[in-house]
Design a binder for these strands. Structure first.
Length: 222
DNA sequence: AACCAGGACGTGA
DNA sequence: TCACGTCATGGT
């Protein structure tokens, strides 16, 4: 027997504190993390930055992405139209530190066209997943952190942690795990934003290296 | 020096 | 559906 998804959240929050996701490059304080302030993003520019970050951070540390965001700003190509007009050389050199630069270059161009076509509207999950380069997790990250749509983000860490906690029987399935959390937690944007960030923080602390969860405080305490 | 990072896509069973 | 190779830089 294990505790509920909500109880795990409370424990994670006590352990790590509020995380202030999604970080925004131009916020000087706390490296862009706006801890305890859920009023972001506040404009189209900030939304686009979250989307770009979500694409660039695929299978890469956000630390590397921050280097890219700095270069994109420095090179004046941190908005969709500038990004589309810029030379491929300049864009690729700006996103190189996040790896997979050929693929991510193509992803950014496709997404920029799409972002412009939205005209300030909120995209659907189907629209996002239909774009080449946007899979389930990136789509959900964009919806939750850029557009404040109440959807739970599942990632490799989520599966790793909750399988160790005994929440996941059988094989990992994105939509199954996602609907589990959304059924248990109800519809709460701020909760979802904080929860996913806490999962990442917790995974970095206790599930980064094998044996996973060796000293995880959630395992032996109850 | 192998391993992992805030994944997604293409391919072949 | 599901497993596997590929994409690439940077830190441990």
């Amino acid at each position: 027997m294990h505790c509920s998804a909500k109880e795990v959240y409370q424990k994670l929050l006590k352990l790590h504190g509020p995380q202030g996701w999604w970080p925004l490059f131009h916020l000087e304080k706390d490296g862009g993390y706006h801890i305890g302030d859920y009023s972001y993003p506040r404009n189209e520019s900030e939304k686009f930055e979250v989307c770009v970050g979500a694409i660039l951070t695929q299978n890469t540390t956000f630390k590397n992405v921050e280097k890219c965001l700095a270069l994109l700003h420095q090179n004046g190509i941190c908005d969709p139209s500038s990004l589309l007009k810029a030379s491929s050389q300049l864009v690729i050199e700006s996103i190189r530190p996040s790896g997979y630069f050929n693929q991510k270059f193509k992803k950014l161009l496709i997404f920029s066209e799409f972002f412009i076509s939205l005209k300030q509207e909120t995209p659907s999950r189907e629209q996002l997943c239909g774009l080449w380069g946007i899979g389930p997790e990136t789509a959900d990250s964009i919806l939750l952190y850029a557009y404040e749509v109440p959807i739970f983000v599942v990632d490799a860490y989520t599966q790793r942690i909750f399988s160790h906690l005994g929440f996941v029987q059988g094989s990992f399935n994105y939509s199954r795990l996602q609907s589990y959390f959304m059924d248990q937690l109800g519809s709460d944007v701020e909760l979802f934003q904080e929860y996913h960030a806490l999962i990442v923080a917790h995974a970095k602390s206790f599930y980064a290296r094998k044996p996973y969860g060796a000293s995880c405080p959630l395992l032996n305490k109850y």
